[in-house]
């Protein structure tokens, strides 16, 4: 390679440094792209409605106009008032648990 300079350690050092700089540059670019493209997980907004009389509760999806304390209907078990007791978000991957809760 390069005719007659194969044994020159100075040249090897220069080439090694050049390669190291290029590799470092590429890695730094890739890591910047990765951190820049990190997206937050999609979230869903859930609403817990609870019966003020028997404590029966259900979880549903949020619709505009809902707020904590809003009366949304009557309890299917005892006929008491069903009110929104919690509104919160969670990652969309987690399964939506509906039905009675403790």
């Amino acid at each position: 390679m390069f005719g007659g300079v194969d044994s020159d350690p100075f040249l090897y050092l220069a080439i090694a440094l050049l390669v190291a700089f290029v590799v470092q540059g590429v890695l730094s670019y890739l890591s910047q792209r990765k951190s820049g493209s990190e997206q937050e997980r999609p979230m869903q907004i859930l609403v817990v409605v609870t019966c003020t009389n028997c404590g029966h509760s259900e979880t549903t999806n949020f619709t505009e106009g809902m707020f904590v304390g809003r009366v949304v209907g009557s309890c299917p078990k005892c006929g008491g008032k069903l009110i929104v007791s919690k509104i919160f978000t969670q990652p969309i991957q987690q399964s939506l648990k509906t039905g009675p809760q403790r």
């Binding site: 907004i45 505009e64 707020f67 904590v68 304390g69 009110i83 919690k86 509104i87």
Partner: peptide, 21 residues
């Protein structure tokens, strides 16, 4: 805009639990 409670709403949420309707 949608009227969703934020993290800072935890104080009023506890107050709501005490006061109810």
């Amino acid at each position: 805009v949608k009227g969703i409670p934020i993290g800072d709403s935890v104080g009023p949420l506890v107050a709501f639990k005490l006061a109810g309707l």
